[in-house]
Amino acid sequence: MILVFCELKDGQLRKPSAEALSEGRRLADAAGKPLGALFAGASCAGSAEAAKYGADVILTAEAPTLASYSSDAYATVLADAVKAKGATVLLAAATAVGKDVIPRAAARLGAGYASDVTALSMVDGKLQAVRPVYAGKAFATTSFASAVQVATTRPNVFPAAEKAGAGATEALAAPAGDFKSVVKEILAKASGKVDLSEANVIVSGGRGMKDGANFKILEDLADAIGGVVGASRAAVDAGWGLPHSMQVGQTGKVVSPTLYIACGISGAIQHIAGMSGSKYIVAINKDSEAPIFKLADYGIVGDLFEVVPELTKAAKALGIGSN
């Protein structure tokens, strides 16, 4: 069996999980194996949606002890499910929870782990992964030495393709409690917008923004085209009051949106490393020699303080909505 650990949010399958399931389905077909979707929580209502993305069987570990996320409790659920089902491949999306629990489960299973992969294939019955290293400056083809093979899929890379599966359900035992660590509280950020790592459209500002307050024009553009705002390391480190969670680059977030608009960003190698996986790149910079233009599908040499508001206006005039 190929097993995919899935996450629910407000009773709905998270998009990165749907992507991982779709990729799992493709691999299961290639390997001639069934696809299992695994859920854990106090309630797994909504898990039936996994059948839409090809799950032959939906496994649920449902218990009050799993109401709050716990690394070791969830690792137990995952590792026990892999053993019980004799699964040879364990996948999950490379989300905050996925990146936390999957390596722990892999270690318990004595399994090799490839994180944040951008391509997967079955070669002679074994999983092979391609993953960005050096924040995307290179790609490593990774194979596994272990019987069980574990990987997390980078959000926004694999298409979420609907393909009906049988979706038979099966309940799993949940660990009783007394966990080593547990999440006590979730502090939501004010905006409520999606994270940069999952965003479809990103509008980013660099040193050319001159001040944190000027990011307002990027917010306006992002709102008009359904995007979120990021920043370069130069901008985050400039003392403009921008949180480091906004930082895109090798020492910040590595992103892969459909559209990345770089405003006043020259294109330092460590920034490019974090965003070169974007499908379309737009650069707006007054310096026509800025390295970012080498990467850009569309370049605008000009004053971003004039161009960005014009873009917002043009987008609004065309009625371009959210993604």
């Binding site: 400056k137 083809t141 026509s288 569309y298 370049g299 605008i300 000009g302």
Partner: peptide, 29 residues
């Protein structure tokens, strides 16, 4: 005991050349 092994390391493919948009700010936008 190693779990995962790198069998190949490659540089990303070059991005195709883009184009610059001309005109005043409104026209560029």
């Amino acid at each position: 005991t190693a779990g995962a092994l790198i069998s190949a390391l490659a540089l990303p493919p070059e991005r195709p050349a883009g184009r610059k948009l001309e005109g005043d700010s409104a026209a560029q936008a």
